[in-house]
Design a protein around this nucleic acid. Structure first.
Lengths: 168, 168
DNA sequence: AATAATAGTTACATTTATAAACTATTGTAT
DNA sequence: ATACAATAGTTTATAAATGTAACTATTATT
């Protein structure tokens, strides 16, 4: 009753709903941490420790003005430090603290545990297809006109200094 | 550079990012409407016109206290009416107005156009697999413990009155 | 009749989204 | 070298979203 098992919804809406469920489960599983949000930022830093703020913004589709407060909060919780890049003093590197590394381990573990759990009754082939299509959809969407809510960076021709991650 | 093409992220995070892109494109494509958000509610009402508020909440994973303001806004824009159910005066049916029906047509058209566009270079088989897995993941997540952010309804044993949609 | 449950509302605090203007720094082109 | 443009990040202000709790009104249960 009033449930949503097989409601035909647009993929963007379905994705939003999935993410709500997902983060509900995640924050439950991490309620022992003193950090109560921004888990995806820690997850990202786990593989990209020391990147700058813009890099996090680009990869997680978070606005840079919001990112300032995210990092402020993480600093206040003693999970990361802001370190000015001496080679380009505009950039602030975000580096996990010792405590941050420890907590990030738990965060990553929870993320992976949830993924493993909810994919457990999906065949390997279907998982691959799913991920392939998911990535394809995001790429297709980026090619469409948008209220570029997150693209607060202009494409540019700079060739130097790879602040990027392995994610190209 | 600082792009996210093939970043390995948890599925919940990927889904959230996809939805951000998606709604960015959607609101761009609907910027001629005077309504600037809550499109998914109109989309849902298109197939479930006259359902009550809780039904919308359940199907779109929106909190009922938030839904009050959503409906208030839609009423102010003359897109829906709140109609008390005479058979159960607790329930308020949400019915599209004439203007609401018209605008909803455009909303639905945009949703479907975007879906068609971003799925256009995905094979039918992969689309089916993708949708199957997407639904499966949501089901799996609902079975896990969560900070039931959206489950502001207790499961109950009531047998009467199906306020539900075809979505069971 | 008393109690519990449901649908919806109100009030409040916090967080997030959005846009604009801003500083500081670096890159580019004359 | 200077001027201009671009980038990284911050601040400010406003609106909207989110989450919590308490509340009314109505209906179901016992």
């Amino acid at each position: 009753m009033q449930d949503m098992k097989e409601m035909k919804l647009p993929v963007g809406t379905k994705a939003l709903i999935l993410s709500k469920f997902y983060y509900g489960v995640l924050s439950k599983s991490l309620e022992n941490l003193d950090l109560e949000r921004y888990y995806s930022v820690l997850y990202f830093l786990n593989e990209n420790n020391g990147c700058n703020q813009q890099c996090i913004c680009n990869n997680l589709a978070i606005d840079k003005t919001a990112m300032v407060k995210v990092i402020d909060h993480l600093i206040k919780s003693d999970l990361v430090d802001r370190v000015i890049n001496p080679d380009d003093r505009r950039e602030h590197f975000i580096k996990l603290t010792k405590k941050g590394i420890k907590q990030t381990e738990e965060v990553v573990r929870s993320f992976m545990a949830i993924d493993a759990e909810i994919f457990s009754n999906v065949t390997k082939e279907d998982q691959e297809t799913f991920n392939k299509v998911l990535d394809r959809l995001s790429l297709n969407l980026k090619a469409l006109p948008s209220n570029d809510l997150f693209f607060n960076y202009k494409k540019t021709g700079r060739k130097k200094k790879i602040t990027s991650t392995k994610a190209h």
